[in-house]
Design a protein around this nucleic acid. Structure first.
Lengths: 212, 212
DNA sequence: GATTCCATAATCGTATACAATCGCGAAATG
DNA sequence: CATTTCGCGATTGTATACGATTATGGAATC
């Protein structure tokens, strides 16, 4: 694995955890020093992430985690709704016990105190979708998850409730175990629509969420 | 516009035209010399394209245009079928005469001798989808178009027939003019399925298409 | 004559170095 | 006292340079 890949993975992990607040400036020298490499592979990795709008290079100012508007969030979930059911539909017939075990582990991990909800959420979905064998689609969906991760982290903390989300995950998983792709997709669509609505609250509620 | 953006755009144009045959090695010094810059912004631009698998960095060997398998092509069209109708559905109500004119121009451009069919194809679809205002989705679809462009160029040359494709485009455009999103989406889905089938021939036909 | 091995050339990947740009704060001015 | 302007510090963006790896061609050997 190349140096660039390692940097990319390191930053992507932080994004999926929702640790990089929108508006944060990433200083390249710091990142380079942290990872023990020079600036060049760092920049190359950041460009890779910027390709899917997870970061933004501003002219002579550096790299910033872009703030999402309500419309951006809606687009993200619109795309998730377009892609993820298709992935799941293709995945269900190919699911093995390994994939299902991975998904269960991800659900268990999200219950642990101090765990990252968005990261576990991605791990769950990724475990299932992985069976489809669509690398390009996986990368797209991963970037969508990463894009909204900080906001998901917000609303899952505010409400006590990844509870309903967790329950929906369980039902999706059960449909997958049953090999019922259509039911799994329907449940997934509902799941995504609810998540989209919940996220929309973060943007439209009067109380400023501190991210504008 | 930064240096990296210019390089990225230059290479992306060549990809959308289908000029970069799969298996081609891109030499960084050459690109840098052609564009009058150094290697570093070139590499950064190539990393951006590599992020969506349009290029691949192989360790200490350089950057190559990856060859697609039949499965890769199927995935690409599967994703197009998932995303593009959604884009179009959101776009139709927002279409202005400007978008429609752009789409017509793209169709006209594809008839010109020596024109790039995949590029004109992208221009047509992009003109319509643009009205949706989904930047992320647009980037995704653009990368999907670029990924299959060399293969589309192949089968549109072999058959005399971008003819049927052109006719389908016309009908989609008419549905858009009529503001009939559902009809436009249905036509688009048929259009994509036919394109996918035509492309599949390139891979499965006995006569080696010279790209393996 | 085919194959293996080695040396050379070419290309890549990364570090170091430097010029350009931007932001911030202090000083000067109205 | 508010506002504008100038200059310094910090950070970026790009070029140059160098070590490392890979491909290639010819000679030696079986």
């Amino acid at each position: 694995m190349s140096t660039v890949d390692e940097v990319q993975q390191a930053v992507m992990e932080r994004m999926l955890r929702g640790e990089l607040a929108p508006g944060t400036w990433l200083r390249q020298d710091d990142l380079a020093a942290q990872l023990g490499v020079s600036k060049i592979p760092v920049r190359e990795a950041l460009h890779r992430l910027a390709a899917s709008d997870l970061l933004r290079f501003e002219n002579n100012r550096g790299v910033v985690v872009p703030m999402l508007t309500a419309e951006d969030a809606a687009e993200t979930y619109g795309l998730r709704l377009a892609i993820e059911p298709e992935l799941l539909r293709r995945a269900v017939p190919k699911l093995t016990i390994v994939h299902l075990a991975e998904a269960e582990m991800a659900l268990a991990a999200s219950d642990v105190q101090g765990a990252s909800v968005p990261e576990a959420n991605w791990a769950f979905h990724a475990a299932l979708y992985g069976a489809a064998g669509w690398r390009r689609g996986m990368a797209m969906v991963q970037s969508l998850h990463a894009a909204v991760a900080p906001y998901v982290a917000l609303y899952t903390q505010d409400l006590g409730g990844a509870a309903t989300s967790d329950e929906e995950h369980q039902r999706i998983l059960q449909a997958c175990r049953d090999g019922d792709a259509e039911r799994a997709c329907s449940l997934l669509e509902v799941h995504l629509r609810e998540a989209a609505a919940a996220l929309d609250h973060v943007f439209t509620e009067d109380t400023d969420a501190g991210t504008r």
